[in-house]
Amino acid sequence: MSFTPFRCLTLPLIAAVGLAASPFVAAEEPLKFGIISTESSQNQAPLWDPFLADLSEALDREVEPFFATDYAAVIQAMRFDQIDLAWYGNKSAMEAVDRAGGEIFAQTVAANGDPGYWSLMITQRDSELSSVEDVLANASELVFGNGDPNSTSGFLVPGYYVFAQNGVDPATAFKRTLNSSHETNALSVANGQVDVATFNTESMERLEEVHPDKAEQLKVIWQSPLIPSDPLVWRENLSDELKGELRDFFYAYGESEAEQAILEPLQWSGFAPSTNDQLLPIRQLELFKQRAQVADDASLSADEREARLAELDARLDELNARLEAAEAEQAAAAQAS
Rank of each mutant, 00 (worst) to 15 (best):
E208A: 13
S181W: 06
F67K: 00
N43L: 08
V233Q: 08
D230H: 14
V143F: 13
M94D: 11
T275M: 01
G154H: 03
N200D: 15
D313T: 03
L136N: 10
S229Q: 05
Y253L: 08
E57I: 07
D317E: 15
W222Q: 12
L52T: 07
A86M: 01
Y160Q: 02
Y253S: 08
L47C: 10
G102S: 07
L85G: 09
D49Y: 15
A137N: 14
I122M: 02
E29G: 09
E209W: 10
Y251V: 04
A336M: 09
Q107P: 11
A86D: 05
M121E: 06
A333S: 09
A186H: 02
F144C: 05
L136V: 07
I262Q: 05
G244I: 03
A252L: 06
G34D: 04
P46I: 05
G192I: 02
A336S: 12
G145C: 07
A261V: 15
T69Q: 02
P12D: 01
N90D: 03
Q44C: 05
S229C: 15
I282D: 09
S92I: 13
F250S: 03
S239V: 10
A186P: 02
R79D: 13
S224R: 00
P170E: 04
L232Q: 08
I36Q: 03
L55G: 05
S153W: 00
S37F: 04
L136G: 11
S180K: 15
F155N: 10
F288I: 00
A53P: 06
D126M: 07
